[in-house]
Amino acid sequence: MDINKKYTPQSWPDHPETATMEGKNKFVGFWLLLAAESVTFASLFATYLALKDKGPSGMEFTAAGLFELPLVFAMTMILLTSSLTSVYAMYHMKNHNFKSMQAWLAVTVLLGAAFLGLEIYEFNHYVHLGFGFTNSAFSSAFYTLVGTHGAHVVFGLGWFIALMVRNAKRGLNTYNAPKFFLVSLYWHFIDVVWVFIFTVVYLMGVIG
């Protein structure tokens, strides 16, 4: 693999993310990592459901009383949109249109950061109400599940930014195409997990 090889949209392979052996390996390996991540979140969800609304006797906080849907709905839409913009970025990556890809990645990062900001606001709000990490088994399970997702968002944002800055001057080649592809895959995964969090934690929390 020659890292200095320049591509044109005509010479650019149909599947740049798996054009090299390294790319193929990363592609399969990352899907497997996502399998492990799925089990990780499954364990967190199971624990959350077991400990939902459980606390010391006389605990005032329950899911139904605590969560408010408008803010969380806005967060959900923002994150879903960021997943869509990362798809646009990959579309341009496959067409070897580096500038458009970077632009859509930047939009994705901004949306991700907005989501993160709202999540920090939400957590801060709960803590001020007295619902801290050490409040009850329920609060521990809630912050660990949603916080682990939040930590994934932070890691994903850092990953996006590192790749965008590192490759800003040299454009796309078959060495960095798999990297861009993987981070967008990771971003979709984060999005899917959030859909489950929105459903299981917030919707089911408010309804019953």
């Binding site: 624990t47 400990l51 459980k54 990490f133 050490t134 009850s136 088994a137």
Partner: peptide, 20 residues
Amino acid sequence: FDRMFGSHFFDVAAGGNTII
């Protein structure tokens, strides 16, 4: 988290569950 950062996953008195 339970031993070092004050959470209550397994602490029955605070609603936790050791069977988890």
